[in-house]
């Protein structure tokens, strides 16, 4: 191989502009964030699963109404928001700005509805006397409240941040400030929040259904 030929290869590979995964840097950044955040949630869920399985007489306070009905509705709302989000991303790539913004607003409304229903659920539990360090069902299992509020609270924080993030993206995309890629990257975050709830819902709620 001649020197000039070698230099040519080196230049093409290292001079920038190459995209080994065929995605833009924003999207790769979001994916890496998602992987690290998924490890945070896995650590919490793994420790919760251990505490749940190893504590005798773990409280099972969740009745069909309100807890299970509400949390199932929340799951439905979040899944539907993922559908509107992915359709919004498609509309963005098709160049339909109005439709994209409408889908994003639908997603935001679903996100707000999720947080609102969840807040009423929290208020019910707090009213029953559940706190992060104690609960009236079984005083020997104080971690019931801690794990419940810890897991759902961190997830709710993610949903709230997601709502703000999507609102900024919808505003900017409507004003032609942002590209379809911005919408897609915000979509990745939103789907991840949905994905995490797919683990929290069965592990926190469905494992503590009142058997009666």
């Amino acid at each position: 191989m001649s020197d000039t030929e070698f230099e040519g290869i080196v230049e093409s590979r290292w001079s920038g502009g190459a995209s080994p995964f065929a995605i833009n840097s924003k999207k790769l950044g979001m994916w890496l964030f998602i992987v690290s955040d998924s490890l945070t949630f896995s650590a919490l869920l793994i420790s919760y699963a251990y505490v749940r399985l190893e504590t005798p007489d773990w409280p099972r306070p969740f009745e069909i109404w309100p807890a299970i009905a509400k949390s199932s509705l929340m799951t439905f709302v979040l899944l539907s928001s993922s559908l509107t989000m992915v359709l919004g991303v498609n509309a963005a790539f098709n160049g339909d700005r109005k439709k994209t913004v409408r889908y994003l607003i639908a997603t935001i409304i679903c996100g707000i509805a999720f947080v609102a229903i969840h807040a009423t659920e929290w208020v019910t539990l707090l009213g029953e006397g559940v706190t992060p360090w104690s609960n009236p069902f079984n005083p020997a299992a104080p971690l019931f409240g801690g794990t419940f509020f810890g897991l759902t609270g961190l997830h709710m924080l993610h949903v709230t941040i997601g709502v703000v993030y999507l609102a900024i993206i919808a505003w900017g995309f409507g004003k032609d400030k942002y590209t379809a890629e911005h919408v897609e990257v915000s979509g990745l975050y939103w789907h991840f929040v949905d994905l995490v709830w797919m683990f929290i819902f069965p592990m926190v709620y469905l494992l503590s259904v009142n058997p009666k």
């Binding site: 080994p20 995964f21 065929a22 995605i23 790769l28 994916w31 993922s82 989000m85 992915v86 897609e184 979509g187 990745l188 789907h191 991840f192 949905d194 994905l195 797919m198 683990f199 069965p202 592990m203 469905l206 494992l207």
Partner: peptide, 27 residues
């Protein structure tokens, strides 16, 4: 069983909603 079903759901969300099926294998 519940975590198994949730893993299936997670795989569906990652592959379709998060477009992983349409990305390069490398990613």
């Amino acid at each position: 069983i519940l975590v198994g079903l949730s893993l299936i759901k997670a795989a569906l969300i990652i592959s379709y909603f998060m477009h992983m099926r349409f990305e390069r294998l490398g990613l």
